[in-house]
Simulated scan of single mutants.
Amino acid sequence: MVKLKKADILVIILIVIISFLIYFFTNKLPKEDVNLAKKVVITVDGKVFKEIPLNKDTKEKIDINTIYGKNEVVIEGGEVHMHESNCKDKICIKMGKISIPGDSIICLPNRLIVKIVSEKRNDNDLDLVIK
């Protein structure tokens, strides 16, 4: 068994304290602005297919039938998800629900992108968030 020295214990305690501080301060950062107007932009093959305002009351089912394939996007409760797709791997369905500007759902075989954008655009805003 390894015996810890006083310096080793001090380093471990410092790492734990620093970790808690980082966690505390990153979770206190400003979150999504609830009053910010958002919209869902659906593009097929790089062209805008449809734009829908996104809020808690928006409830819509959008069928997208193109030469590339068929998708069904559902907007409900301020969230958007891909309900159905006839693509082979169904990764777009597994991406889950999105609700924050910058989030997107992508179906490559059907050349479809569903993304949430904010109405207020700032030059310092992020263009893309990768999870």
Rank of each mutant, 00 (worst) to 15 (best):
M1Y: 00
L4W: 05
A7T: 12
L10E: 00
L10N: 04
I12K: 06
I15Y: 03
V16S: 13
I17Q: 07
I17E: 09
S19N: 08
F20G: 07
Y23M: 06
Y23R: 10
T26L: 07
L29F: 01
E32V: 13
N35G: 15
K38S: 03
K38N: 05
K38Q: 08
V41C: 04
V41A: 08
T43V: 05
D45R: 00
G46R: 10
G46L: 08
K47N: 11
K47G: 02
F49L: 10
K50A: 06
I52H: 06
P53K: 11
P53F: 10
L54I: 05
N55A: 10
K56S: 13
E60D: 12
K61S: 15
K61D: 15
D63H: 12
D63E: 14
I64P: 05
I67P: 00
I67N: 12
Y68N: 06
K70P: 00
V73E: 04
V73C: 08
V74F: 11
I75V: 14
E76L: 12
G77H: 07
G78F: 06
E79H: 00
V80T: 08
M82Q: 01
H83P: 00
H83I: 01
E84Q: 13
N86H: 09
K88I: 05
D89Y: 09
D89E: 15
C92S: 03
I93C: 03
I93Y: 01
K94P: 03
M95R: 07
K97M: 02
K97I: 01
K97C: 00
I98W: 00
G102Q: 07
D103C: 05
D103F: 04
S104Q: 11
I105A: 05
I105M: 08
I106C: 07
C107Q: 06
C107E: 03
L108P: 06
L108D: 02
L108H: 09
P109H: 10
N110W: 02
L112H: 02
L112Q: 03
L112A: 09
I113K: 14
I116K: 01
I116H: 00
V117N: 01
S118W: 00
E119S: 11
R121L: 09
N124D: 12
L126S: 09
L128W: 01
V129F: 05
